[in-house]
Computed example of a mutant assay.
Amino acid sequence: MTRAQLYDIVKPEFRDLIHENLSLTRISSGHVWTEGPVWFPAHRQLLFSDIPNQRLCRWTPDGGTSVFRAPSNFANGNTRDLQGRLVTCQHGTRSVVRTEHDGSQKVIADAHEGKRLNSPNDVIVHSDGSIWFSDPAYGILSDLEGSRADPEQEGNFVYRVAPDGQWIRPVATDFVQPNGLAFSKDESRLYVAESGSSHDASVPPVLKVYDVLTDGELACVRDFAEIDNGLPDGLRVDHYDNVWCSANDGVHVFAPTGDLIGKVLVPERVANLTFGGERGNVLFITATTSVYSVFVNTGAS
């Protein structure tokens, strides 16, 4: 990929977020479907999932790629909690689990109203300690990313687990297949990817946005932006409240108004992304068989 091919600059303000003289770097390859990147500053490492291969992988600048956990129970989305612990969505166990500092695992959520979840997909943590995750059906549709099974829930929802972990409830129920999640910088808005067009072309490939109320409820849902190539999957919000979202042709970047300002073009279909690195200014991209990185002029919100 040449430098000229790396960016699609739609609006001038996108230039402030990138370094046009830098190239995309493939830092890991040979996977089947990479997902769930999360950077751990204390360990200078990126963790990411290779879902069909049932591996959680580790990448470090000095050591390259190694296996962090296998089998991974078809791990998908990952994040850090407020104590720096790994929180993971597992298709195989249809649960959200936390890895404690001693390496043991604790189930955060695996059911609602006595019925098994579908297949938790992406997960984020609010500053109040609550855990929010999407629960589409992808992990039970086939045996590729989990185990084929009939859904037990009435639909595919976004859930919130209370800070004390004692109760779980759906907060968004108006999706065909909810996917990536991200809060705005001040946590007043929640962005959610609708990826239902993966199996139903009539579903618009949109990012929806909600107002987040002080009691953890959501209100005033509206369409924020539409992906013009493929469908939205994982997403992140940067320092300036821009939304960076995965797509077939790369990472689409939207201003806080919802206007597309540019794209980071990637030679493989992108599933997810995160910011990390020593100074937080590296964009890590999980894209089908590979993981890529590029320095940017922004970072996580």
Rank of each mutant, 00 (worst) to 15 (best):
S188A: 08
N118S: 07
H126F: 10
V270T: 13
L22I: 08
V282L: 15
V176L: 06
A162Y: 08
L260A: 06
K185L: 07
F68P: 05
G196S: 00
S104I: 01
A287T: 11
L207R: 09
N179G: 05
G216A: 00
Y191W: 01
P120A: 04
D174L: 00
V192A: 01
N229G: 12
Q83W: 14
S290A: 08
P163W: 02
A193N: 06
V161E: 02
A193H: 02
S198I: 09
I168N: 04
S49Q: 08
R85E: 02
E13T: 11
K115A: 13
V171H: 12
G258C: 10
C89S: 12
T288L: 11
A149V: 01
D228S: 13
V32Q: 14
L82N: 14
W33L: 14
E35R: 06
D211H: 11
D211R: 13
V87N: 00
N121E: 03
G139A: 13
Q105P: 09
V87G: 02
R15F: 06
D228K: 13
V253H: 08
D200H: 06
T93W: 07
F295N: 15
T214Y: 14
A255Y: 11
V206K: 10
C57A: 10
F275A: 07
F183V: 01
N73L: 11
K11Q: 13
R222G: 00
F175S: 11
N272M: 07
D110N: 14
L22P: 05
S134V: 13
R3W: 02
H91Q: 02
H31P: 05
E217R: 14
V270F: 10
D135Q: 00
G216T: 06
S95F: 07
A255S: 14
C245T: 15
L218K: 09
N242L: 04
N73C: 13
E268I: 08
L6A: 01
Y138R: 06
A225Q: 05
M1I: 01
A182L: 05
E154Y: 11
A247H: 12
N242D: 09
D215W: 05
